[in-house]
Design a protein around this nucleic acid. Structure first.
Lengths: 141, 141
DNA sequence: ATTTTTTTTAGAATTATTATAAAGTATTTG
DNA sequence: CAAATACTTTATAATAATTCTAAAAAAAAT
């Protein structure tokens, strides 16, 4: 994530939110900063909320949920479901797959090209395929 | 002991539960009958509980959850996670994949051989692969 | 600056599931 | 078989993740 020296620190994020039709509010900017600075990552609402507390940003848990859902709707995040308990949001929105560590519930990205799929079966009548998820479950050996 | 085929209606299920180390109680037998008679299917706890009510069997929801978990532990069922809200249990315990219909939340089995996977990426150090799930998400077109 | 629209928030509500502990049933033992 | 033991079921409470509500706050439009 390159940052141009001399620019106002949030201007990239402001533009990004505006482009997505979301008002660049204090809380959305704070969350976007945490999410999109640094390398790609996987967060839950609870994790993200914890980080806002650590940083002294005041954002309610409800807003964290709202924001994660909105960011997902506009394509800034991708929602991943691996176990039934909680939802993960992936800042890597490209087409890719996941390792799921059953013990720690941690996710790890697998590059799209590292999983080779043959031709997919035909979708049932009246439907079309919108996404293919491959989850490779791993355990400590 | 000789067993007369077709004599006692529950004897197969009783044997199956016993073999799995589970006492063949009235409620477990009732649930097993619903689950394992007829073709393979995908159920949630709520669905299965609804069916017991329809059949006039009295089984509490807690027991339905307990039983689904126990059946899964002993390999009589396979748990499938596709969206975060609820867990599905699949009476087809063979290695296979799924279509997930986003609109109706319905699952459909895909035969193992209908999804061809190339060589898998190496599991991270200290871990081993225990399962690979392919979920093909479909929507009405 | 005023109005309008959108957003945030605290807290209540919902949903799926698991825990608890008392009562019931199955199995084992004598 | 009956008594003792072990396992199950159940109603209910508890938990956890997430969404809803409606009032207050902030952003954008006028």
């Amino acid at each position: 994530m390159e940052r141009v020296i001399g620019k106002r620190p949030y201007s990239d994020l402001i533009d990004r939110l505006r482009a997505a039709g979301l008002r660049p509010t204090r809380q959305r900017l704070g969350l976007a900063k945490i999410l999109f600075e640094g390398p790609a990552r996987h967060v839950t609402a609870e994790m993200l909320h914890g980080e806002t507390v650590d940083e002294g940003i005041h954002v309610s848990l409800a807003t964290v949920y709202n924001t994660l859902n909105q960011f997902t709707e506009v394509g800034l995040l991708r929602e991943i479901v691996v176990d039934g308990e909680r939802s993960y949001f992936d800042t890597n929105t490209s087409d890719h797959h996941h390792f799921y560590h059953a013990g720690s519930s941690a996710l790890e990205d697998i590059d799209h090209d590292d999983v080779v799929l043959g031709p997919l079966p035909a979708a049932p009548n009246g439907t079309r395929i919108t996404r293919v998820d491959v989850v490779i479950r791993i355990e400590d050996s």
